[in-house]
């Protein structure tokens, strides 16, 4: 049994990272490039592979930004957002 996404190699073709999304742009989480307590904390907050995620807010200084995921809003700093791999949502859908 192989998992769909290998976290050791988290950037399939056509994917990007959460920090590169523009404000109000949305995508689906592919993988979390984080480990340990940090990873569990994000999973608890709803950053689950497969979940839809949207850039909800940008603070007045540009970083951190807040993301809407699974009905909640959670702020992350850019370095952390860069560790989350995203498949861009099809604009037509």
């Amino acid at each position: 049994m192989q998992p769909l996404i290998q976290t050791e190699n988290p950037t399939p073709v056509g994917a990007t990272t959460l920090d590169r999304l523009a404000l109000h742009q949305a995508g689906r989480i592919l993988a979390l490039g984080l480990e340990g307590a940090e990873r569990r904390r994000l999973l608890d907050l709803g950053f689950v592979p497969g979940a839809r995620i949207e850039v909800e807010l940008e603070n007045p200084l540009g970083n951190p930004r807040a993301f809407r995921v699974l009905g909640g809003v959670v702020a992350l700093r850019t370095e952390q957002a860069a560790r989350i791999t995203i498949a861009l949502e099809n604009p037509a859908s």
Partner: peptide, 16 residues
């Protein structure tokens, strides 16, 4: 052995 971190992810996904 087969899953590593992905197991936790799958479990979480299943919870949600």
């Amino acid at each position: 052995d087969g899953y590593g971190d992905a197991l936790a992810d799958d479990a979480m996904e299943a919870y949600y």
